[in-house]
Simulated scan of single mutants.
Amino acid sequence: MDLNLLRTFMAVYEARSLTGAASALHVTQSAVSQAMSRLRRDVADELFYRSGREMLPTPYAQELFPVIRDALGRIENAVSAQAFDPATSSRRFRIALSELGEMHWLASIVERVSAAGSGMGVDVIQLDPAGMADTLARGVVDVAINSAVVPGRFQTWTLKHEPYVVLMAASNPLASGELDLAAYRGASHAVVTGESGHSNIERAVDALGGAREPVAVMNHFTALPPMLCATDLVATMPYSLAVRWAREWPLVMRDLPFPFDPVQVRLYTRSAHQEASSLLWFRDIVLAATEAESGFTPVPADPA
């Protein structure tokens, strides 16, 4: 069987469209359609069916996907390990990051990519923890940094262990002395939506009797410092960001008044069935950038 047919299958599976597959493969949509017609005849299955604007896989295509992905990955890793040249590449890498990830690591990642080759770029995709397994499996992003566990057999690295603390204005009545559980539960809280580590905090507090509904629910961490300074609200947040803001604003940190294990922040890499050598290069760039910023040496982690 022509391996290009299998590459086309993978591209359609990942993009969920003929147009997206054609763009990823740098061919025409007509070429993708012809390749898929040949493959359908070879395997005696439709492989994809149209649902709205998407091409969805048949049950047989879902069975084929991991087999073809792993086989192509092994082949391309073997024959193209030295094929990627960052100095001449025009590759655009795609990374899924939270707002915290952008604040902590994006500048260092982009700086290292740009230094290696002026033709390359980095596109940040909004982090969606609930859909990240599918996003990685389909190759929508190359790598993702996430504190929520992503199920699947992806290459996974632990980037750091992030403790959580309580941040509040220095003028807040709770800022003087030790913060106990009763005061924490009764405090007026500000919460950032989409912060994956906060769900763990909520579960821990619920197990201890719960807390008041948050007074303010915001979309961005950058809105927190002025909000806390202007009110008596408190925010439970990652230590690395809280300690930075405590230096820049009249804010103080307090330890959590209950046991809470640090959150593990992990890097997940998509399956490398296409452009394997460039993907591995970018993964190493991200690992080096996060280590330089956090001081924690990344270690391989078992897939979820």
Rank of each mutant, 00 (worst) to 15 (best):
M1Q: 14
L6Y: 11
R7N: 15
A11R: 01
V12S: 02
Y13R: 10
T19R: 10
A21R: 01
A21M: 08
A21W: 02
A22K: 06
V27E: 07
V27T: 14
T28Q: 03
A31Q: 13
V32G: 04
V32Y: 01
Q34M: 06
A35E: 03
R40E: 14
R40Y: 03
R40N: 10
R41C: 05
A44P: 03
L47E: 10
L47K: 14
P59C: 05
D70V: 12
A71C: 03
R74M: 13
R74N: 04
I75D: 02
E76W: 09
A78G: 07
A78Q: 13
S80G: 11
S80W: 12
D85C: 02
D85E: 15
S89C: 12
S89E: 11
F93A: 11
F93D: 09
F93C: 13
I95E: 15
I95T: 15
A96S: 15
L97F: 09
E99C: 07
G101H: 04
E102S: 08
M103T: 09
M103V: 07
M103A: 07
H104D: 13
L106Y: 00
S108V: 09
I109Y: 01
E111F: 05
R112D: 07
V113P: 01
G117N: 04
S118L: 06
G121H: 00
V122L: 04
V124E: 02
V124F: 11
L127W: 02
D128V: 04
D128I: 06
A130I: 00
L136R: 03
A137D: 10
V141T: 12
V141P: 00
A144L: 06
N146Y: 01
N146W: 00
A148D: 05
V149I: 12
V150E: 05
P151K: 13
T156Y: 10
T156I: 02
W157C: 02
T158H: 06
K160C: 13
P163G: 12
Y164R: 12
Y164Q: 14
V165F: 12
V166Q: 06
M168H: 11
A169T: 12
A170P: 04
S171R: 15
S171M: 02
S171H: 11
N172I: 03
P173I: 06
G186T: 10
S188I: 00
S188F: 10
H189E: 08
V191K: 09
S196D: 12
N200H: 13
I201R: 03
E202K: 10
D206R: 09
L208I: 07
L208Q: 09
V215Q: 15
M218R: 14
H220C: 11
F221P: 01
L224K: 07
P226Q: 10
M227Y: 05
L228V: 08
V234M: 13
S240K: 09
S240V: 03
W249K: 04
M253C: 13
F260D: 02
F260R: 09
F260M: 11
F260Q: 07
Q264F: 01
Q264L: 08
Y268I: 11
R270H: 04
R270A: 15
A272M: 09
A272L: 13
Q274P: 01
E275A: 10
A276N: 04
L280W: 05
F282I: 00
F282R: 05
R283Q: 15
D284P: 08
D284Y: 08
L287E: 03
A288P: 06
E291C: 01
A292D: 15
A292T: 12
G295A: 05
G295V: 00
G295P: 02
V299G: 06
V299D: 07
V299I: 14
P300C: 04
D302F: 08
